[in-house]
Design a protein around this nucleic acid. Structure first.
Lengths: 240, 240
DNA sequence: TGGAAGCTTTGATCTAGGTCAATGAAGCTT
DNA sequence: AAGCTTCATTGACCTAGATCAAAGCTTCCA
């Protein structure tokens, strides 16, 4: 029973499906549950495509660009869907930033079931374009943004996902290291650190210890991010 | 009748739906057909989300990062689906690189119809993750790749979409300018030009006029792109 | 067919961010 | 609580690519 919890949570909250139903049972038959401790990588044989849900925790999706270089393609948190096709240019892997629970489906079978079930199809058809849009926004930031803009944008995006907002300042407990931030922004660890310094000296943020960040001036930070990160209306569930 | 052609082409070839069927009629009611001449931008009111299909032609999806800076997020060709959510960080627009025909659907209604129709749902559920993966690969290239790697990767990607392969060399007629290539790779026009020069001097490509490119050594070009652009198995329809 | 307008190439600097190197915190471990 | 290991910060310097500037090519239209 305890073991069922993450699965039932998903069928119900993500897709509006009752645990006992036909389709629910069918999906459950497809799912594997995976528990990852911090730093562990999900054992996805990269033969075939997988759909991964982060039931709880925080993960990074890493593309191995070469032996030396790797890029973090996205961070995922509770409830996010991670689409991991095997036929991209780079090998992708999912690694936990802290203890996380995953649900893994074989993509083809999952989509086969989903396509026939309007509620699931709708949920996916809403989530995937959001994930795509997030990825596009990241591509723009990587292609056009300065180091400061990228970090400012990153902090704002994170604050929307995992921030606790009081009055006008926002507390943030980053589960990723400076190295990982750099790998996701296409910057070195030193540059990330220096940019934290820049934002700190501008009085826009405060840092405490390694992971704790307080955002003082969200609007100014948004302007630093390139004017454009207008406080995004949280339209539906964050998905990617 | 002539006017119906692009629509019928889509319902049939993209979704396996017969023109006269119920769902076909329903979708047709949602669609607007748009003819764009070179340089024209599709008049998508950016109030609400749109799903755009490129029935024929070549288009660029542009994100306006600021008044000065814009980034080309993707190029689309015959048969591609363009998902244009309105709630990204940046305003997106679709502009024709040459004369193009578009089919435009309001996203919500389109997904509502699609979710109930397994063939359409499946088609979309296959296409969207591919588009997402393409975007992620681009993000990796933008985050990690040198100028040479980006251009090499770009040329390979284009050759897979619009190249005519003879024996071992591949002819390519690029519909976009150096400026547009630069805007898509996060490089300046001058750098793009210099990198063309580099690849030319390495004997990997030849250029004739502004748009004609011949790829001589695909494997070597792939290695220049960062080892990783393994000649991608053309799995299903290109989608994004 | 001539020539203007706009692309593209090439060259000479300049600079943001990378690289290398050292110091200074955090946070585990025992 | 001491000490060790790992992570983060700071500094000095150096390159890839941006910027500024000037020719060369295409293309297209009269």
């Amino acid at each position: 029973m305890t073991h069922r919890a993450p699965f039932d949570f998903f069928t119900r909250s993500a897709f509006g499906i009752e645990p006992g139903s036909h389709i629910g049972t069918q999906l459950e038959g497809l799912a594997s549950r995976i528990d990852l401790s911090k730093g562990q990588t999900a054992p996805l044989d990269n033969r075939s495509d997988r759909i991964v849900f982060v039931a709880s925790g925080a993960t990074k999706l890493v593309a191995q660009a070469s032996e030396q270089r790797q890029q973090i393609v996205a961070f995922h948190f509770d409830g996010d869907i991670v689409s991991v096709p095997a036929d991209g240019l780079f090998a992708n892997s999912v690694t936990a930033l802290r203890h996380s629970e995953l649900l893994v489906f074989p993509a083809r079978e999952f989509f086969d079931s989903a396509a026939g079930e309007a509620r699931i199809a709708r949920s996916l058809l809403e989530r995937l374009p959001i994930a795509l849009q997030r990825c596009r926004d990241r591509a723009v930031a990587l292609g056009q943004g300065s180091a400061t803009e990228r970090l400012a944008g990153f902090l704002l995006a994170m604050s929307e996902r995992i921030g606790r907002a009081d009055a006008d300042h926002c507390e943030l407990d980053l589960p990723m290291s400076r190295k990982e931030i750099g790998e996701s922004l296409g910057l070195t660890i030193e540059t990330v650190s220096r940019q934290f310094g820049v934002l700190r000296e501008l009085g826009l943020i405060k840092t405490q210890g390694r992971s704790r960040v307080t955002i003082f001036d969200r609007d100014m930070l948004s302007r630093k991010a390139g004017h454009l990160h207008q406080t995004q209306k949280t339209s539906g569930n964050p998905t990617n």
